[in-house]
Measured scan of single mutants.
Amino acid sequence: DETGKELVLVLYDYQEKSPREVTIKKGDILTLLNSTNKDWWKIEVNDRQGFVPAAYLKKLD
C-alpha cells in the first residue's frame, strides 16, 4: 500500500559508510520513511531501511 508514502529522487550516488546507512544511486526514486532530522533522512532501498544525507535527496510532489 503506497498511499501516503512520500517519494524522493536521488540526486547523487552515495555509498553507505555504516550499517545504519544504505547505498543509493543517482536517478533512483525511493520511499521516504522519515525526514524529521534535517541532515539525515531514513529511506527504503530494496527492502532495506537506512539513512542517507538529506542533501542527496529531493522530495517529489
Rank of each mutant, 00 (worst) to 15 (best):
W41H: 02
V45L: 09
K38Q: 13
Y14C: 02
D28M: 15
L9I: 11
E21I: 03
L33W: 06
K25L: 07
E21C: 05
L9H: 04
T31F: 11
D39S: 12
T31K: 13
K59V: 09
V10M: 01
T36F: 09
L60R: 04
P19T: 09
D61M: 11
K42R: 10
G4K: 15
L11K: 05
I43D: 00
Y12C: 13
A54C: 07
K38E: 12
E6T: 15
E44W: 08
E44R: 11
Y14Q: 00
V8F: 05
T31Q: 13
N34I: 07
D28N: 09
I29L: 07
V52E: 00
L32Q: 00
K38L: 09
V8A: 07
L33Q: 03
V45K: 15
Q15T: 14
D39Y: 15
E16N: 06
D1L: 13
N46Y: 14
N34F: 07
N37D: 14
D13W: 03
E44K: 12
L11M: 08
I24K: 00
K59N: 05
N34R: 07
Q15F: 15
P19D: 12
K38I: 10
D1G: 14
Y14D: 01
V22Y: 03
E16V: 07
V10I: 03
A55N: 11
Q49T: 12
Y14W: 09
K17G: 07
V8H: 01
W40L: 04
Q49S: 11
S35H: 11
N34S: 13
L11N: 02
D47K: 10
I29W: 04
K38M: 10
L60C: 09
G50M: 07
Y56D: 02
E44A: 10
V22R: 03
T31S: 09
R20A: 13
K5S: 10
P19M: 09
T36Y: 09
S18Y: 07
K59G: 04
K42Y: 15
I43K: 00
Q15Y: 15
P53L: 04
K26H: 06
D1F: 13
L33A: 03
T3E: 12
Q49V: 13
N46S: 12
V8C: 09
D39T: 15
L7H: 12
V52H: 01
N37F: 08
R20Y: 14
N34Q: 10
W41I: 02
K26M: 08
T36H: 13
L30Y: 11
L30R: 12
V8L: 04
D61N: 15
P19F: 07
A55F: 10
T36V: 10
D13P: 06
D1P: 13
T3S: 12
L57A: 01
I43A: 01
L7P: 04
L33N: 02
W41A: 02
D61Q: 11
S35Y: 08
E2G: 14
N34A: 09
K17P: 04
D1N: 14
N34Y: 06
R48G: 05
L57P: 00
L57Q: 00
T36W: 08
G50V: 09
Q15E: 14
L11V: 06
T3A: 13
D47T: 10
L57M: 04
D47C: 11
A54V: 05
V45W: 08
L60H: 05
P53W: 04
E6P: 10
L60A: 04
D39E: 13
T36K: 13
T36E: 14
Q15D: 12
W41V: 02
T3F: 12
Y56L: 08
Y56T: 08
L11Y: 02
I29R: 05
E16T: 08
F51R: 03
L9V: 10
L33M: 07
N37T: 06
L33D: 01
N37K: 06
F51Y: 14
